[in-house]
Design a binder for these strands. Structure first.
Lengths: 244, 244
DNA sequence: TCTCCATACCTACGGTGTAGACCTACGGCG
DNA sequence: CGCCGTAGGTCTACACCGTAGGTATGGAGA
């Protein structure tokens, strides 16, 4: 059984409606961070904002890191993915711009998201959507995988990974298969990716060097194209649209 | 006279060789951060590592933020830019990979670099080199500017800007011109960019929204090209991109 | 020689995250 | 009905943090 990352709330229904909830704590924490910045978010101030002893928070939150995990995921949950019907490109553009709007609403969020080590459910959902858009748009698993990385690290800073094997004992093939099957229901495309990655050499992880060079070459090639288009003014659509 | 951002060391030579120097402090801080992570870097531990009272550090460092400014710039100074003679693309590729190698050597560095608000001299030098490579490669000032942003935010997280006018009182044209002239000697390409930006509408700042969309479209276009190459390697790409 | 002042040191304050003991009130059960 | 186990809230206390403000010192300039 996988160790629970947060407080175990699965035992039984509480006898009475508890005054404090993880949800209530998280929304208050997001508000506090919005108001005073991420450095202004302390357990004491948060407790005060909720009219509660700071230590009471620890009944719903493992530690401050768990709290940060929570509010990071809460912010990602605010993103409203685009449902543009004009093809994968327009859809993705809309989703990414929506993500950016959300990040601008919570300026501290990108930073804490970058520092998280494990994605929460909303972050998984977001990745599933981006991945699904690419796959439905005709991308191979491999290319969609790279796409997820470039697009992710652009908006937030996904550099570490879903299937990072540095921390945990190396997951063997059986474990990975089990993980993938468990995810298949909620996150089919992520599961598909997990299976594919499993088959490749990079057992259980993404090669960060490869992702970096992929993004770098994508950018350099793109810049080269724009430079050549600028030489030949007839074809400069992107340039034009930017300076318009 | 521009307000000094750190301790003023310009007055006169110290009477005797001071046991503590900003340089000594910075290298010790980098070592400490490498060894214990960025959270392990405290003024107390740093003082202990140097065999000195923690408060003595404040004679060479305004506050901890100034210390972070210092070590961030010190890390950037470690980057050895490529001198590849195979054209702008190869040169840039080499420089960016060198930057990445340096960042991997100091895993905490990307994070603190992102949180800095003003680039130090080494960071300026690095930007000057990237900008110069693009300009020498035939890029317009405008496109080189965009390029600097995409490449920068890929490696570290330059999202805020050199000429950010949010914090300071709006610099008027005269001030900006003076800034540009002062920089011209050391950073000709950055100065050129500053002048160009001054002429445009975006008085004294870069529009972050524009940069985001530029990068987003660069990536989306790149992914589309790769997808089409996978579909049909023979067919002309330009032809396709026009009908897309 | 005297004075000045940059540098290093010291104490102390208000903040942080959180361990561990305590209290309290409710649901389940004999 | 009455007892008990326990989850959830509280309190105290500890170790650590950044750093304001005061003090001592020793070489350089007058």
């Amino acid at each position: 059984m996988p160790r629970r990352t947060a407080i175990d709330t699965t035992r039984r229904a509480p006898r009475t409606q508890p005054s404090l909830t993880r949800a209530r704590i998280l929304t208050a924490a997001v508000e506090l961070a919005d108001r005073e910045g991420i450095d202004g978010l302390s357990m004491r101030k948060l407790g005060q904002a909720l009219g509660v002893d700071p230590m009471s928070l620890y009944n719903h939150v493992r530690d401050k890191d768990d709290l940060l995990d929570g509010i990071a995921d809460a912010v990602v949950a605010e993103i409203e993915p685009s449902s543009d019907s004009g093809g994968w490109k327009a859809t993705l553009r809309g989703t990414l711009l929506a993500a950016r709007r959300t990040m601008l609403r919570h300026p501290w969020a990108a930073g804490v998201l970058e520092s998280r080590v494990t994605p929460g459910p909303a972050t998984m959902r977001y990745m599933e959507i981006v991945l699904g858009t690419l796959r439905d748009g005709g991308f191979t698993v491999d290319l969609a995988h790279h796409g997820l990385h470039v697009l992710g690290s652009r908006t937030f800073g996904f550099s570490q990974d879903l299937f990072d094997d540095k921390a945990e004992p190396i997951p063997d093939t059986a474990q990975l298969t089990a993980m993938a099957e468990a995810m298949a229901a909620d996150f089919p495309h992520i599961a598909e990716l997990a299976m594919a990655v499993r088959h490749e050499g990079g057992l259980g992880g993404c090669d960060d060097d490869v992702e970096f060079e992929f993004a770098l070459d994508l950018i350099l090639d793109g810049l080269q194209r724009l430079r050549e288009q600028a030489d030949d003014p007839d074809r400069s659509q992107v340039e034009r649209s930017l300076t318009a």
